[in-house]
Design a protein around this nucleic acid. Structure first.
Lengths: 235, 235
DNA sequence: ACCTGAACACCGTTCAAGT
DNA sequence: ACCTGAACACCGTTCAAGT
């Protein structure tokens, strides 16, 4: 018996030497499934199937589904650039950063939901984003003991807005049902006697909490104006 | 054969004539499971089991799990009383109402999560709460086109805060892990060189978004102060 | 060490069959 | 009409066995 021939080199091009799962490919696959088919489609089984393997294989690279979620959030948030803080312009910078963060969180539906569920951000990308926001706040003249609270609440508001906004544009067709209900509730309000829910009726506002971009920007303006007032007291 | 004897009257006390499932008992059962064992325990199967029946039986009284969630939220929110709007006191009234709503949403862990997921409130209790908040805002002198935005964003913020806060006190032991991670991240920040995440390091703040009651109250004060400034412009 | 895939202990929802 | 419970089509996670 001869020694077996070495495999001809062109075979190597056909399939990579070994399938080689990595955390990165898992996260990328999860993100592409998410943006293509929405949050419900992001299951361990589905991701594994996409990578031609069984669900158990993923657990060699990722602790559990929650950790995978955090890694997805991190990858998504890495695209946000934080500006060099400029004491002359902190108000504009802060607002721009919030709008940008909200934009990224809304862009891929489902990411904001993960952000909302992730109680403590421990992942580099998110820490960088937080640090950037604090950097702007710290050159605003706001007393130090307020800065943590301000950053905290601003981040919360951005995340919450992005979450609600993304519910409206999920690719799962859930948003159609939402629009239908919005109409129904308008009719319902009109049908009520004048003394029931008079304010909702008067505004004819179905009150979807916080999904209008205008409302979000208004809230940012009001909040930042309030912060500036705090800064003026103790410059 | 004689006609069968009528059942002796004391038997009736032993078991109710017929099991009779109602929407109300289902919602009540769901709420008590929720407050006893947290959101994960609230499954259709579990509720059915609690009522000595199969999961399919619930679907005669409730369309699906989402609808059950909304009914639970409604029942929980019904305890919030909205004050008679007083133009002299709208700032205090507004703050009190927000604190009260947040308190109720935080009280039963899991309710805030439902509130966050419920895109459009269509249920009487929530509509009443919204109407009350709008009532206070309408006697504040804030221009009408801002009132919807203000109410919208305030409700969003209350809900989001309650959601994050309730993550910390879930009975599923998830909160212990959260506290552990909070410590770990503090250590991690200290271990970093001075030029990495300088602001987070300086504040030594792990930045759990929006869970401190102080921070929430601060945000309400800042936001309401900002609204008042708007009201002063056009009285 | 990494990967497999069968198995475990669950889900929400549907539906024919019963009373 | 209301209820049943078996069945369907899924989950996340674990783990012995393979390479």
């Amino acid at each position: 018996m001869n020694a077996p021939l070495p495999p001809p080199p062109w075979r190597r091009a056909t399939r990579t030497p070994r399938r080689q799962l990595t955390t990165e490919t898992i996260v990328d696959t999860a993100l592409s499934v998410l943006s293509a088919e929405g949050p419900d489609a992001v299951t361990m089984r589905r991701i594994a199937h996409e990578l031609d393997t069984g669900p158990g294989s993923l657990y060699a690279h990722v602790q559990d589904k929650r950790e995978l979620h955090e890694l997805m959030l991190d990858a998504a948030m890495r695209v946000v650039e934080t500006p060099e803080p400029d004491p002359q312009n902190w108000r504009t910078q802060l607002k721009q950063l919030c709008l940008e963060q909200a934009r990224v969180l809304t862009e891929t539906p489902g990411i904001a939901q993960i952000a909302m569920e992730t109680l403590i951000p421990t992942t580099p990308g998110i820490l960088v984003a937080m640090d950037g926001m604090l950097g702007i706040l710290r050159c605003s003249g706001i007393p130090d003991d307020r800065i943590a609270a301000a950053g905290d609440m601003l981040a919360l508001h951005v995340t919450a807005y992005a979450y609600e906004a993304s519910l409206w544009q999920s690719p799962s067709g859930q948003s159609d049902e939402a629009h239908r209900r919005l109409g129904q509730i308008g009719d319902y309000l009109q049908s009520l006697p004048a003394d029931q829910l008079p304010n909702l009726k008067a505004m004819n506002h179905a009150m979807p909490h916080g999904t209008e971009p205008d409302h979000f920007e208004f809230a940012l303006d009001v909040f930042i104006a309030g912060l500036a007032a705090h800064a003026d007291v103790r410059p």
